[in-house]
């Protein structure tokens, strides 16, 4: 086990290096660079520059005139020292800009994940133990509905309904007076008051999906002989369902814990834009459009690190709970 752990930890290094290279290539792929899009914005704003000379000057100032591998290595070197770089658009260190937003993203995603699990587990188990009953069919119907409604549409619907019937605006994560305020009890309560909307929007599809998967896994397990054996032993039905088939049916979820969280962070970009959330997603989208490469790269690297570490944690957890994995 220890040897396995060390091997897995060492493997993270080349994986992250490869991801950083890929991320860099992807960001370089679109034609033009930050200067091109910067000049375009300036032109739109009405500012007139004397063409080539200014562009070249800017490029030289920001180091964009160097060949790609020099820029990549410089970026990588900074990353290794914990420096995420400098955002050309915001004219501020990337770390400063992204930190608070990334933490908000994590909070929203984590809360949504917890909600999804808390709701989906009992319903999935209930549904599987009463296959094809009226309640099972009802849950299935609602589940498909939840799966097929796009998140952003749900966000729009909720905003409309809240505005129309509750006469409140539910966008954002803070009320006006707290947006720039320091953290305080008031701000925390305000934050919690806003948090439920994105959590529900993001959580609906996840809940529906999880119910379907849990139900299918559990149905597979419930028909196995060891369940019948446990029943023949005289075990109480609820106890035996929880101890045997549920215990085995949740293994796929344990193996997915690792990438559920980063998946939710990167998956809610559109929802965040629609709801006007001050999370990392909209910032990333903006950075891509402005070719603000350091900022976009930092976002991709943060998500990747979360994913790689998350998957490692999942694998360790799975080995802990499933002896069959441990012995391979």
């Amino acid at each position: 086990m220890t040897e396995y752990l060390i091997r897995r930890l060492l493997l993270i290094v080349p994986v992250l290096l490869l991801i950083s290279l890929l991320a860099f290539i992807v960001m370089e792929a679109p034609p033009g660079d930050f200067v091109t899009s910067y000049m375009m914005r300036q032109a739109e704003a009405g500012a007139l520059f004397d063409g080539a000379g200014v562009e070249e000057g800017l490029r030289a100032m920001w180091g964009l005139d160097k060949p790609w591998y020099v820029r990549y290595l410089r970026w990588l070197g900074n990353l290794l020292r914990g420096d995420l770089g400098y955002s050309l658009f915001w004219q501020a260190p990337v770390g400063e800009i992204i930190a608070s937003r990334f933490i908000l993203s994590m909070t929203v995603a984590l809360a949504a994940t917890v909600l999804v699990w808390v709701i989906a587990f009992p319903i999935g188990i209930y549904s599987a133990t009463r296959q094809y009953s009226l309640s099972d069919n009802a849950v299935t119907f609602v589940g498909f509905l939840g799966l097929s409604i796009p998140n952003f549409l749900l966000a729009l619907i909720m905003m409309y309904l809240a505005n129309r019937f509750l006469n409140i605006s539910i966008g954002g994560l803070f009320s006006q007076k707290y947006v720039t305020a320091e953290w305080s009890w008031g701000k925390l309560l305000d934050f919690l008051g806003h948090l439920w909307v994105p959590i529900i929007v993001i959580g609906v599809a996840g809940t529906a999906g999880l119910i379907r998967i849990l139900r299918a896994n559990l149905l597979d397990e419930i028909s196995k002989s060891y369940v019948e054996m446990a029943r023949a032993k005289g075990l109480r039905e609820t106890v035996l369902i929880m101890k045997y088939p549920v215990r085995i049916a949740i293994n796929p979820f344990i193996s997915s814990i690792g990438w559920v969280l980063p998946g939710m962070i990167s998956g809610d970009v559109i929802v965040s834009v629609v709801l006007g959330l001050p999370t990392a997603g909209p910032l990333f989208l903006q950075a891509l459009r402005q070719q603000d490469m350091m900022l976009a790269g930092a976002y991709i690297m943060l998500i990747s690190i979360c994913t790689v570490v998350g998957i490692l944690l999942s694998d360790i957890l799975l080995a802990v709970v499933d002896p069959r994995i441990r012995y391979h």
Binding site: K224, S225, Y226, E228, A232, K233, G234, I248, D322
Partner: peptide, 18 residues
């Protein structure tokens, strides 16, 4: 289990794997 016990066909799947 207490007064009437039962064993089933496939011993592989009759015992819980975990």
């Amino acid at each position: 289990g207490k007064r009437i016990a039962m064993i089933f066909q496939d011993p592989m799947t009759c015992l819980s794997p975990v």
